[in-house]
């Protein structure tokens, strides 16, 4: 079957199977920033934006994305590069496996709650597990990033 979707601003028609999930569909089409950390919607690594909202792509059926707008980090490169500066500034980028997913959630956060305080940031990013940083530096980085947008 065919999936018609707008991926990173470009209309695409992708061949999919009924049981496919977006994580595999996107990776198969070289959106390699989307990576697998688990298979149970519980780590946040595979986060993408569908209609601007962060969703885990490991359990999002590709067919469900018919007609929708999908964003991966490949589609928000300037944002990711800028955010990386703040992560670097706080020493918040260790292995980085979870960072493209976090970048997308922060992108959504900056639209939904640009004035987010530390608690809100923590709450918003709770779905992103990270085993490297201890989180403190991530929160500081995101806080400074949001302040920098003002």
């Amino acid at each position: 079957m065919k999936l018609h979707a707008t991926i990173n601003g470009r209309k695409r028609v992708l061949e999919i199977q009924p049981g496919d999930v977006l994580l595999d569909t996107l990776r198969d089409h070289d959106f390699i920033s989307v990576r697998r950390g688990c298979d149970s919607t519980s780590c946040g690594v595979c986060t993408i934006l569908v209609e601007g909202k962060p969703v885990p792509s490991c359990t999002y059926l590709s067919a469900r994305a018919e007609g929708k707008t999908i964003t991966t980090v490949e589609g928000v490169q300037d944002h990711a590069a800028r955010l990386a500066g703040f992560f670097g500034g706080e020493g918040a980028d260790q292995c980085g496996f979870c960072n493209p997913g976090i970048a997308l959630s922060v992108y959504a956060l900056s639209n939904e709650a640009p004035d987010a305080d530390e608690d809100t940031i923590r709450h918003y990013l709770t779905g992103h597990l990270c085993r490297c940083t201890g989180y403190h530096s991530q929160v500081q980085a995101v806080k400074k990033y949001l302040e920098g947008l003002k």
Binding site: S33, A80, D93, G96, N99, P100
Partner: peptide, 19 residues
């Protein structure tokens, strides 16, 4: 000094084994 590779990884470039 920020880590030398953080930016490219945040931007989702090819980096990890499976990539």
């Amino acid at each position: 000094n920020p880590s030398i590779d953080g930016k490219g990884i945040m931007m989702g470039r090819k980096a990890f084994t499976e990539d």
